[in-house]
């Protein structure tokens, strides 16, 4: 029963994610206008044939900004995910595999990092380094790897205790070979599931920090930036906030559906 339900969820999620991916990929062809083109004579126009979702306070095409915003958001989400995993995978792998003091030292560091609310910590780091997208990326990676490393370590610990690791040692394989060929290969799937569950959260956090002015900087088309740009017009032109809000919401929904679906499937597979 639940398998079928999840299946629909995961399919809907995949459709959404795929649609966003295609929009991001083909943004230049899909967008009706240049997302950066300012036309003060056309500001705050209602939807029309030439501007399907109207224009913003600088007369820019809202639809085009949304479409290019997809590109920005997905790109940065991927970049954050990649940099977070670039740190957390090796750290988690080494902590779980080496054990002993190395593991203990790493775990204490992780405990300390996790004692802070991660969003506020990355906010503080970005504010300190100066608000910009690369700095945001850096602050995310610096803070968020800890939680992932901890989960990855526990996956590694589980695999490490299997007899085939002992067998690999008896076969004369080196630590490096064992970590990559045996542990990482078997950990890849749970790590992927972990990633898919968290994509939505990261996307939301990026938009949130951009909204606060700490991430993408205007005039870059980005959903969080669009939200903060439109804030002064909340009363008179609420639709300007609605569009990026909905774009974010559907994106997060799509990623979460896929993530949860994968996680459920994994649970079922393990129970079977």
């Amino acid at each position: 029963m639940s398998g079928i339900k999840n299946n629909y969820g995961i399919r809907l999620g995949l459709v959404i994610v795929l649609a966003y991916g295609l929009i991001a990929l083909f943004a230049p062809w899909l967008a009706p206008a240049d997302p950066l083109h300012v036309q003060m004579s056309h500001k705050l126009e209602l939807p029309s044939w030439s501007y399907p979702l109207g224009t913003d306070h600088l007369g820019r095409c809202v639809l085009s900004r949304l479409i290019y915003g997809t590109r920005t958001s997905l790109l940065y989400t991927l970049a954050v995910l990649a940099s977070v995993f670039a740190i957390s995978i090796p750290v988690g792998l080494i902590a779980g595999y080496a054990g002993g003091r190395i593991d203990q030292a790493i775990m204490r560091l992780i405990d300390v990092l996790l004692a802070f609310p991660s969003l506020i910590l990355s906010l503080a780091i970005t504010a300190m380094l100066g608000p910009s997208m690369p700095n945001l990326l850096l602050s995310f990676a610096a803070v968020w790897w800890a939680g992932y490393a901890r989960v990855i370590r526990s996956v590694v610990l589980q695999i490490r205790s299997r007899d085939y690791i002992q067998a690999a040692i008896a076969s004369g394989s080196s630590h490096g070979t064992i970590m990559v060929r045996h542990i990482l290969r078997n950990a890849a799937r749970p790590i992927l599931v972990l990633a898919s569950v968290e994509v939505g959260t990261i996307l939301l956090a990026i938009a949130g920090l951009s909204f606060l002015g700490l991430g993408a900087q205007p005039p870059v088309p980005e959903w969080g930036v669009m939200l903060s740009d439109s804030r002064p017009y909340m009363q008179t032109e609420p639709r300007l906030l609605l569009y990026p809000g909905i774009a974010i919401m559907i994106a997060v929904l799509g990623f979460n559906l896929v993530g949860e679906g994968l996680r459920e499937q994994r649970k079922d597979a393990r129970a079977a």
């Binding site: 299997r162 007899d163 085939y164 002992q166 067998a167 690999a168 008896a170 004369g172 060929r181």
Partner: peptide, 16 residues
């Protein structure tokens, strides 16, 4: 190592 080898107890966990 090559001279001393082992057949493991739980055959299901013994193979990647």
């Amino acid at each position: 190592r090559s001279k001393l080898q082992m057949v493991f107890q739980n055959s299901y966990a013994a193979f990647n």
